[in-house]
């Protein structure tokens, strides 16, 4: 009995310690914009600063260059939306076709799809830049959007789902009922694959939203920057996260913390919306149908 209680207490302590370990930085981040730079140093790390300081922090960030952060935010949103939409439109039929149709080159295409997933993104930067430059798209939104539509992970996940979770008999039955191949894809496969589609869409959104190096290399105009690259330029110019801020720009550690929260908020909202599908999507294809 005593051994059981000890074991249970040990588990609880481990559980609480784990929660505290992972939650503390998040709580600190949430509280950081309520403090001044010096308060971040001398106040209790988990103490609340003040609402007026939060207002000052928000105002400093949002008024920088007449609110250019909103342009960066909007750019991130539309680059992500367009990029993910095209990626889904391309990867869903591709994955479905690889799983349900036998054609010459099927295996090779699947193999190449898998291969491209392991190529480091950095290795493609130079050829991508040269490609975009050749068609005059450098420093345009399309230089960020188009490379982002290449999504082999999505193709492979749809392939797995279609192969393992959708029985061929359903598709055969639809064909016997006279449905077209496009109709089968749209009216039968897509509704059934919704959890998997939402899952790959979620990961595509996260990848596109957090993309840094591609827009960093492709874009130079200030008003074309994404939230990630714009904030990085701002932080490096002000030394807000190390070194001194030798400018008159009122961007310091609290403003950077606020910007960080602002940049993860959309992803958090998407996650809350998609979480039940994510759980279902992860299990999709785990069992053969």
């Amino acid at each position: 009995m005593r051994a059981g209680m000890t074991s249970s207490a040990g588990r609880n302590i481990l559980f609480i310690a784990t929660i505290a370990f992972f939650a503390t930085p998040i709580v600190w981040l949430l509280l950081a914009p309520t403090k001044s730079t010096n308060q971040l140093s001398y106040l209790n790390p988990l103490a609340f600063g003040s609402l007026s300081q939060l207002g000052t922090t928000a105002n400093n960030l949002l008024s920088y260059q007449n609110g250019i952060i909103w342009a960066w935010f909007f750019n991130s949103v539309w680059y992500t939306l367009v990029s993910v939409s095209i990626a889904l439109v391309a990867s869903i039929p591709a994955g479905y076709a690889l799983a349900k149709f036998r054609f010459r080159g099927n295996t090779v295409i699947l193999f190449v799809t898998l291969l491209t997933m392991i190529v480091p993104a950095a290795a493609l930067i130079l050829p991508l830049y040269l490609e975009m430059s050749a068609v005059g798209m450098v420093n345009t939104p399309w230089s960020v959007i188009l490379p982002g539509t290449f999504y082999p992970f999505g193709v492979y996940m749809i392939y797995l789902f279609a192969k393992n979770a959708i029985p061929d008999s359903i598709i055969e039955a639809a064909r016997l009922d006279g449905a077209s191949e496009f109709g089968i894809l749209m009216r039968i496969f897509v509704p059934l694959a919704r959890p998997a589609i939402i899952m790959i869409a979620f990961f595509a959104i996260v990848g596109s939203w957090n993309s840094f190096f591609l827009p960093f290399i492709m874009l130079t105009s200030a008003n074309l920057q994404t939230l990630q690259t714009g904030l990085q330029a701002l932080v490096s110019a002000t030394g807000a996260l190390g070194g001194g801020n030798l400018s008159n720009i009122a961007i310091h550690a609290p403003e950077v913390a606020f910007a960080t929260l602002l940049s993860i908020l959309p992803i958090l909202l998407v996650f809350l919306f998609a979480q039940k599908y994510l759980a279902a999507g992860q299990a999709a294809g785990a069992e053969k149908g």
């Binding site: 960093f216 130079t220 105009s221 200030a222 920057q225 690259t229 990085q232 330029a233 490096s236 110019a237």
Partner: peptide, 11 residues
Amino acid sequence: KIDVISGAQNA
């Protein structure tokens, strides 16, 4: 034409 470039080393 004015572009804002990151002040990061070697950017």
